[in-house]
């Protein structure tokens, strides 16, 4: 049976999420392309609302959704084209290995960037980059009996707002997060200047057709609509939104694959470190607001290894269990 194409134009914000969940629950293999005029935040399944500045979001009318698939927190708005691939987990065209799944279904997206003149490439786990700058983020997972890939093509991106909706440890952290997003993320507008959104969509669909064969144009049926409304009750319920996740995560913010900003307090000392490709590229250490230049110098440029960081922290700080915890946070499992 042919994979269906749902070219849905602009949709209300929550429907942009509900539609691919509904199709997956109903076992309908499809490519969905769509946009929204509204701005909202989408959390990965293991994120929690505690990671968001809910007061700011409420006062600015920015809602949030907790999707059933993976990936991190994303800010979505009218300057993005969303794509969702829904395939049966047991279909012959569905890879078993996660890496193969991403490579296969991100290939049409890469081809789209290439046709637009950008040398995009896949960076595991699931980023698409131009040079070293992320141009598309993706999340995926199993919903019902279908594997789902969800991502977006960034026409433009509001980094200031992205840094604002997150609940972050302090303003130094927030400012650095924004700087890093400027440096590590890019968009079609920044790369191309001008482009046609409808042309981008046309190329994207064409490239997915090269992968799947001819896609069968489809519209939302009453059955799909019913499923969306049924799921809306679940996904917007306090039980779902507040389900336990990985916990409050003001301590590590992922900017792009290989680039993290971490916050590690040790008593009155606060360390903010940028971990980039396994090295500490930037460090800000303060005690009661005063810079600790010597500690910053010792850590900057060091490899993000737990043992090395622990040794440096032990030389500069009075030992306590929180020193070990700080070293673990800064090293990030290395």
């Amino acid at each position: 049976m042919a994979v269906k194409l749902f070219d849905l134009g602009f949709m209300p914000w929550k429907d942009t999420q509900l539609v691919y969940h509904a199709l997956a629950k109903l076992g309908i293999e499809a490519l969905v392309v769509q946009r929204t005029r509204e701005c909202y935040v989408s959390l990965g399944l293991f994120n929690t609302p505690q990671e968001l500045d809910l007061e700011y979001m409420r006062s600015h009318g920015i809602p949030y959704f907790r999707r059933e698939i993976g990936g991190g927190i994303v800010l979505l708005d009218s300057e993005q084209l969303f794509y969702h691939v829904i395939v049966h987990r047991d279909s012959a065209h569905t890879p078993v290995k996660t890496d193969s799944f991403y490579r296969k279904f991100l290939a049409p997206v890469i081809a789209t960037y290439k046709e637009l003149g950008l040398e995009a490439r896949y960076k595991p786990a699931n980023d698409l980059v131009v040079g070293e700058r992320k141009i598309s983020g993706n999340g995926a997972g199993l919903i019902g009996e279908c594997k789902v890939l969800s991502g977006s093509i960034l026409f433009d991106f509001n980094r200031e707002l992205m840094a604002r909706v997150l609940r972050l440890p302090n303003e130094v952290f927030r400012a650095r997060a924004k700087e890093l997003m400027e440096e590590r993320l890019t968009t079609l507008r920044e790369q191309l200047g001008s482009f046609s959104a409808s042309e981008v969509k046309r190329i994207l669909i064409e490239n997915f057709e090269s992968l799947f064969g001819s896609l069968e144009k489809a519209e939302l049926t009453p059955e799909i609509e019913r499923e969306m409304r049924r799921l809306e009750k679940k996904y917007l319920s306090p039980e779902w939104l507040n389900m336990p996740g990985r916990g409050v995560n003001g301590r590590e913010l992922k900017i792009a694959e290989g680039c993290y900003l971490v916050f590690a307090p040790v008593g009155e000392v606060e360390i903010i470190a940028e971990r980039r490709e396994g090295e500490l590229a930037w460090v800000r250490a303060t005690i009661n607001g005063a810079r600790m230049s010597k500690l910053e110098e010792s850590l900057t440029g060091e490899s993000a290894s737990y043992e090395k960081i622990l040794n440096i922290l032990r030389e500069s700080l009075e030992y306590s269990p929180s020193v070990e915890e700080a070293a673990r946070v800064i090293a990030g499992g290395n």
Binding site: G44, T98, N126, A140
Partner: peptide
């Protein structure tokens, strides 16, 4: 690949039914 998160989603187990979510490489 490396498992990053794991959560148990059921109190009772039913054979063949999902009882946990697990995330690796941003795939749940």
């Amino acid at each position: 690949g490396y498992l990053n998160y794991l959560s148990i989603t059921a109190e009772k187990l039913e054979k063949g039914e999902a009882f946990a979510n697990v995330e690796s490489a941003k795939f749940v």
